[in-house]
């Protein structure tokens, strides 16, 4: 039905978006690739072009790289485990007939809208502070010695804070998926004598499979670049330096642009591996 004329118009309408995204993606990325092959340290006045793969070599072989990858994996994995398992359980609970469901939903979703710097600071100071934090009171109340969360269990503390922010997201998406499950199917299985556990394993969980995958992939994209939560709590100390944070420190704090850019490209490659899987799933959805 679309005429030649309307096709040309459509292309024109789409052009600005394609153009700005192309520029946004290509120019900075090419610059980073270029810098990654340079010995570029502005503070020392060093700017030698073309040192080959030296930066990559140095970045990968430095001890901080492997530990930052490990930290990233533990952090992302921990947060995913907490939010997905918690999200499934919470979604099933909220799907039950309860009084005041709307209000509970509002309470549960709230942390997602709290800006990262606020949630990190509130948890850090008002809850995890070893002297005046609420957890310290709780520990003292039960006769235990208060824990200095962010220096004794720094990685766990950050996982906890970020999970609090993302649990609502997982819950909301999984709840949407749970609610699309036909109750007839559940009823039929119930009549056939399926218990609660087997109903969960054989009907609910497979139905949620796609939503869980989407939650995992989207969260991974965002979680790989966690920044503010680390920035205001530990500043990368005590083994909480993720790959993103390591690159940030190399580039902006120690101003070793070449090394940092090499790290940045590695981060891009890692993120793309995850992205490919996400795109496949979203792409499939586009067909139907």
């Amino acid at each position: 039905m679309a005429t030649q004329h309307s096709r040309a118009a459509a292309r024109l309408m789409n052009a600005p978006a394609v153009f700005v995204l192309l520029v946004w993606m290509l120019i900075p990325l090419c610059m980073t690739i270029y810098f990654s092959f340079m010995d570029y340290r502005p503070l020392r006045g060093v700017a030698d072009c073309c040192v080959g793969f030296q930066n990559y070599e140095r970045f990968i072989t430095s001890s901080s790289f492997l530990s930052s990858v490990a930290t990233t994996l533990i952090m992302v994995g921990g947060i995913l485990a907490i939010t997905v398992i918690g999200g499934v359980l919470l979604a099933l609970l909220l799907d039950q007939p309860i009084w005041g469901q709307g209000i509970v939903r509002i309470l549960v979703i709230a942390p997602f809208f709290v800006m990262p710097t606020v949630s990190a600071l509130v948890w850090k100071n008002m809850f995890m502070n070893p002297v005046n934090g609420l957890f310290a009171y709780l520990w003292k109340f039960f006769g235990a010695t208060p824990i200095d969360w962010l220096s004794e269990l720094p990685l766990f503390s950050i996982i906890w804070i970020v999970s609090w922010q993302w649990l609502p997201f997982a819950t909301l998406i999984l709840l949407t998926a749970v609610q699309s499950l036909s109750s007839e199917q559940l009823e039929a299985s119930e009549m056939d004598g399926a218990g609660a556990l087997s109903r969960f394993t054989y009907i609910i969980l497979p139905h949620l499979g796609r939503a869980i995958t989407v939650v995992i992939l989207i969260q991974t994209i965002f979680l790989l670049s966690i920044f503010a939560e680390i920035f205001v709590t530990t500043n990368g100390a005590f083994g909480t330096r993720t790959l993103t944070y390591l690159v940030y420190q190399r580039v902006l704090e120690s101003q070793n642009i070449g090394l940092g850019s090499a790290g940045g490209i590695l981060a891009v490659i890692l993120a793309n591996i995850v992205a490919i899987f996400l795109m496949r799933i979203v792409g499939k959805n586009l067909d139907n």
């Binding site: 789409n14 978006a17 394609v18 995204l21 946004w24 993606m25 120019i27 900075p28 990325l29 610059m31 980073t32 810098f35 994209i221 790989l224 670049s225 920044f227 993103t244 690159v247 940030y248 580039v251 902006l252 642009i257 940092g260 850019s261 940045g264 490209i265 981060a267 891009v268 993120a271 793309n272 995850v274 992205a275 996400l278 795109m279 979203v282 792409g283 586009l286």
Partner: peptide, 26 residues
């Protein structure tokens, strides 16, 4: 159209830290 949409989505996957310095520089 589908390819264009997917490509647009892929730009979202670019980790910000990878382009931090060029953006600051620009």
């Amino acid at each position: 159209t589908k390819d264009v949409l997917m490509w647009m989505l892929s730009t979202k996957m670019l980790p910000a830290v990878g382009v931090l310095f060029p953006i600051v520089l620009i």
